[in-house]
Structure formats: structure tokens, C-alpha cells
């Protein structure tokens, strides 16, 4: 089953890779380049994405701010949000969780892992 994913990352390379990994898995990928862009894109999407992937270190609005802003809106309470970051410090993970992140994946990512995690959080995997 195809999932629609919004991927937010300021690195063009990572965006390209995510798009490739997601489309190869048969998913629909929409990308944005920072938190602000991510929020606008989310608003513009005709249907809510099944899950969101976001980076932490980004200009204008970082990942924490982005997750906060997404969760602040009632309609987006249930969207699973996976953080994809090179960082792995517990302090950052707990900040992300407080903001409302669903999970944390460390970059560089294994595409099959990412897909599995997305399927799991979006409930489309083994259902």
C-alpha cells in the first residue's frame, strides 16, 4: 500500500535520497527544505500525509520548532513524525519527543529500515 510522505530536510542531497528511497518503495514523496517550508507544504497538501520525516538542524525553523508547530494544530495531532538526524544525543531525542515526535532515526539511514519504520508508524505495514 502506498503511503504519502512529507520529508523535510535542508540538504538537497538528503531530500533527493529520501525522494528516491520513498518512490522506489512505491510511496508518494513530497519534500520541503525547512520548518517554515514544511508547514506551508503541509497546509498545501490536498490530503494529509500518512507520515512526516524531518531533520533537526535546519535554517529558519528547526525540527523541534516544526514538530511543535505541527502538533499545535488539532488536525495534525495524529500524523506520525519521524526525526531523521545525524545526531543521536538522548537530550535531543527527549526534546523531540516532548515536542511530539513519534520516532527517531539516525542518519545515514538504511532505506529499508526507514520504509519499515514508516510502514509501522503509519500502520500500513502488516495490517
Amino acid at each position: 500500500m502506498s503511503l504519502s510522505i512529507l520529508a523535510v530536510d535542508d540538504s538537497r542531497t538528503i531530500r533527493d535520497m529520501l525522494r528516491l528511497a520513498l518512490t522506489q518503495a512505491g510511496f508518494e514523496a513530497t519534500t520541503a527544505e525547512d520548518g517554515v517550508d514544511g508547514l506551508e507544504t503541509l497546509k498545501d497538501m490536498s490530503e494529509q500525509p500518512d507520515a512526516i520525516i524531518t531533520d533537526i538542524n535546519m535554517p529558519r525553523m528547526d525540527g523541534f520548532g516544526f514538530i511543535d508547530a505541527v502538533r499545535a494544530q488539532d488536525t495534525y495531532q495524529a500524523i506520525p513524525i519521524l526525526v531523521l538526524s545525524t545526531e543521536s544525543a538522548d537530550e535531543l531525542k527527549s526534546r523531540a519527543r516532548t515536542a511530539g515526535a513519534t520516532g527517531w532515526i539516525v542518519k545515514p539511514f538504511d532505506p529499508s529500515k526507514l520504509i519499515r519504520a514508516l510502514n509501522m508508524v503509519a500502520g500500513k505495514g502488516a495490517a
Binding site: 502506498s2 538537497r12 531530500r15 525522494r19 520513498l22 518512490t23 512505491g26 510511496f27 508518494e28 514523496a29 513530497t30 519534500t31 520541503a32 527544505e33 525547512d34 517554515v36 517550508d37 514544511g38 506551508e40 507544504t41 498545501d44 535554517p59 529558519r60
Partner: peptide
């Protein structure tokens, strides 16, 4: 076959 949209026009 999946659609891919790049809406990276924010900044």
C-alpha cells in the same frame, strides 16, 4: 510508479 513532488520553494 509513484509521484514525486518537490515543493522546495520556501527559501
Amino acid at each position: 510508479p509513484a509521484k514525486s513532488k518537490d515543493k522546495s520553494t520556501g527559501s
